[in-house]
Computed example of a mutant assay.
Amino acid sequence: MIDKQSPLPIYYQIQELIRKKIDKKEWQTGDVLPSERIFAEQYEVSRMTVRQAVTELVNEGLLRREKGRGTFVAEQKFTQTLQGLTSFTEDMKERGLKPSSRLVSFNVKEAAGKTARVLGLNDGEAVYEIQRIRLADHSPMAMETTYISKALIPGLTKNIVQNSIYEYVEAELGLAIGYGEQSLEAALAMKKEAELLEIELNDPVLLISRITHLQDKTPFEYVKSAYRGDRYKFSIQMPRNEQK
């Protein structure tokens, strides 16, 4: 109910009503919301107030608008912290989702340029080049291109890379993964990314670049990923440094 005597703005109260309906699964992903007119009549408020409430929730990503069709409950974003190194497979399993991969290409090629440099290889040394679409409950989440030293991580096959490479490295090869160095930036989806991630050209994506090291600090993996901006967000804890 709307309390017009409350110090809380009416548009904010409408937002909270919508949130509660989504949290309680009364409205689920893909459901269409009542029109602004119906909202306004039901709660005896102006359509402008309803529009403000809905617009803020669209900007937040909780709702999405489709021109000529209405406003819908959006697919909710996954939040991944930037502390700690986990594989995509481990991350999805922790969320109770079924991880899988769709292999786009699997090749052995000669390392060159930045790939050779970040993996500590000479130009011409062999690397695996693996391109996968990473899925959660069969929904595409990220396009991932991985380069791995063939000499350091021998025996990779198409079957292995469609599951967890980290599990193979640790459980099968007995190598200890130590840490990763990661950078993140916002971008717009290019043609191939849009096609493989099932989004529109120029939709937002999060580009992630990671170099992963074994415990002895040897780099073994260089990954470039494009995550769907409508399905993923990243968070980080930032402790305050001691003042000197």
Rank of each mutant, 00 (worst) to 15 (best):
E66R: 10
H138F: 14
A116C: 01
A171I: 02
I165S: 09
E125N: 04
A126Q: 15
G155S: 04
Y168L: 05
A136E: 11
L152A: 01
A142G: 03
V108I: 14
D91P: 02
L152K: 04
T79I: 15
L103D: 12
R134F: 09
I133R: 04
V161P: 09
T89Q: 10
T71S: 05
N163I: 05
F106N: 10
L119Y: 07
V54T: 10
E170L: 00
E129N: 09
Y128V: 03
A142C: 13
K158F: 06
G68L: 06
Q162Y: 02
E172H: 05
K158C: 03
L57Q: 12
T55P: 00
P154C: 05
H138A: 12
D91H: 13
T115P: 03
L85Y: 07
V161G: 08
V118E: 09
Y128L: 03
L152D: 13
Q80M: 05
I148E: 09
A111G: 07
E144D: 13
A171Y: 10
P140F: 13
R65G: 10
A171C: 06
E125A: 05
S100T: 14
T86E: 13
L85D: 13
P99R: 01
K114Y: 08
N159Q: 15
L103Y: 01
R117W: 01
E66Y: 09
V73A: 02
Y166S: 13
L63R: 01
A126G: 07
L85E: 14
E90R: 05
Q80P: 01
K109E: 11
T79H: 11
V127Y: 00
R64S: 14
L121H: 05
G120N: 12
G124F: 01
T79L: 07
P154I: 02
A126T: 14
K114P: 08
T145D: 12
D137C: 05
A136H: 03
G61I: 02
L62S: 04
T146D: 04
K150V: 00
E172K: 03
G113R: 01
K93L: 15
Q83S: 09
R132G: 07
T115R: 14
R51V: 08
Q76D: 08
G155Y: 02
G70I: 07
Q131T: 15
A74M: 02
V73M: 02
M141H: 10
A151Q: 07
D137T: 04
I148T: 06
A151W: 00
I153D: 07
G120S: 08
E170F: 04
T55R: 08
K77Q: 14
V169K: 04
L121V: 00
A112P: 02
G68W: 06
H138R: 12
R134D: 15
A142K: 06
R64V: 12
V127S: 00
Q80K: 12
M143E: 15
S100M: 06
A126N: 13
Q162N: 08
T81Y: 12
M92I: 03
V104W: 06
P99E: 13
T89K: 04
L135F: 06
A171D: 15
Q80W: 09
K114L: 07
R65Y: 11
G70M: 03
E144L: 05
E60T: 00
P99N: 07
Q52K: 08
R102G: 13
T89P: 04
S101M: 06
S101K: 11
G96K: 01
S149A: 08
